[in-house]
């Protein structure tokens, strides 16, 4: 990790709202997360989950409220703060004309990581793509791209990991591997936010869960009931 980058062990979303013109995407969202938390963000399409992830990534500014990474905000942290954030988006941020190795190498060099070759090799092995390392990403299936994109997002060992629909396009084996990887990240002290519609996988990875609906975010109570039931109860509460 580069010197001078301030680490943090908690993220506080403090009364964050975001509007796009007259449309309100997020309204007064407050949520705290600490190292080791894996938070599943559940909610219908267009509820504001991706907007929340974009704000957490520091790419988008909230209209009001603030996100604190430890003691600092995104404005305080500036560009170096992003050394501690990893983002897997719905689009995968991969160059299809480059090979898997070239994609990871480019990112590793952009993040100024030490031992680029070793880091890239480890990333390729974790993505189970060591034997396809020198093939162009354009020829990969969605699942292979998804695995590579995840390793691209985790190459710099970020503290805050943001995953937008991480299980999309993965077969059962790859999805199981991703569940293990995310759980391992949590045990390693990362703070993980994962927006997903897949309750089975969310149940397996999440230590906490929150429901985002019509721009509002409410943490689901812990309990013995299955996650999907707690989620439906929250939605019903919002509707009432």
């Amino acid at each position: 990790m580069s010197a001078g980058v301030r680490d943090f062990d908690r993220v506080a979303i403090d009364d964050v709202s975001r509007t796009f013109g007259r449309r309100r995407a997020l309204a007064h969202v407050t949520l705290n997360a600490a190292a080791g938390d894996v938070i599943a963000l559940l909610g219908p399409n267009g509820a504001g989950k991706s907007t929340l992830l974009s704000i957490l990534s520091s790419l988008m500014r909230p209209t009001s409220g603030a996100v604190r990474y430890g003691a600092i905000t995104a404005e305080d942290g500036g560009d170096p703060l992003r050394l501690r954030i990893g983002f897997l988006g719905h689009e995968l941020f991969l160059y299809t004309d480059l090979t898997a190795r070239e994609n990871l190498t480019f990112m590793a060099r952009l993040y100024n990581l030490p031992d680029v070759a070793g880091t890239v090799e480890r990333g390729l092995r974790r993505a189970d793509l060591a034997d396809r390392a020198d093939d162009r990403v354009g020829g990969f299936s969605r699942g292979m791209r998804q695995r590579l994109a995840l390793e691209r997002a985790l190459l710099h060992q970020p503290r805050l990991v943001l995953l937008d629909e991480p299980f999309t396009g993965l077969d059962d084996r790859s999805a199981d591997a991703l569940v293990d990887r995310i759980s391992e990240l949590g045990r390693g002290g990362a703070i993980v936010f994962a927006a997903t519609h897949d309750f089975d996988y969310a149940e397996r990875i999440a230590t906490r869960a929150a429901c985002v609906n019509r721009g509002r975010c409410r943490e689901l109570p812990a309990g013995a009931a299955p996650l999907v039931e707690r989620y439906r109860a929250a939605l019903a509460g919002d509707a009432a």
Partner: peptide, 15 residues
């Protein structure tokens, strides 16, 4: 814009 790689660049700590 294809595959939103610009966002990937902007997410990196590069100025």
């Amino acid at each position: 814009r294809e595959h939103d790689t610009l966002r990937g660049l902007l997410l990196s700590p590069v100025e």
